[in-house]
Design a protein around this nucleic acid. Sequence first.
DNA 1: CGAGATGTTCGGCT
DNA 2: AAGCCGAACATCTC
Length: 263
Amino acid sequence: MPELAEVEYYRRQWDAGLRRQVTRVALHGGARLFRGEDPVRFAAALPGARLLGSEARAKQMLFRFSRGLWVGVHLGMTGKIRVEPRDFVPGRHDHLVLFQATQALVFSDPRMFGRVRFFEGTAPPPWWTALPAAVTSPEFTVEVVRDFLRRRARLAVKAALLVQTRFPGVGNWMADEILWRARIDPRRTCGTLARRAEGLWRETREVCRVAMETVAVDFSDPPEGWFYHVRWAGDGACPRCGRTVKSATIGGRTTRWCGRCQR
DNA sequence: CGAGATGTTCGGCT
DNA sequence: AAGCCGAACATCTC
């Protein structure tokens, strides 16, 4: 499920636990989620620490605790963050639960494509600091997009939008939305899009900006008129021209677009 | 029952 | 050598 704005929404769910101590940590299976980590050691270190704050960037989140402890979460395809009562009993897919006096902070992920990382230090972990600048930041310029299109000349533009080092936080539905607004055929290769770089840049920023003002706030759907609303069913109609949307696998992902509006 | 799912990573081919 | 593609990961839902 989660792309940029949904990740921000999920991050805020644990705000309910701000300034409170963790009393107990429950780990449940899913060793894959903790790959490269030592969850048992960390579960022993966390009780007594307080949740001090958190941040989301791209599809990653980082939770900061006192005592210099940090927890990083990536939701993968089916990860979720939620809050349950203090007497919560973790279910099959609730892989990490941070109990507090008044509630339980829960991370679940049935498919286990997500990832949980632990870190101890005074500054955020290196993997966090190394994340690319947001597409809504001043560093994300039209020149950056133009360079990338040149370098990936033979890659389908749909696949290019999913490259996280260049378009951090953009996922499958946002990529389709961006291309629909920019009127670009998702099958086109980047090398043919030199003159469309500005539109692609502008719509990337716009889709992310508006998604952060809607989806991220309350998990509501994006605004009416967005391609989003027609891209799920096989027979949706283009909000602009009414033509039935096309469907194909591009860059290994299901892609929907309007054969008339997008060239 | 088979197909597909809003993501990443790895191995292999060009 | 870099870039690209397809498979794999694990489970649920339609």
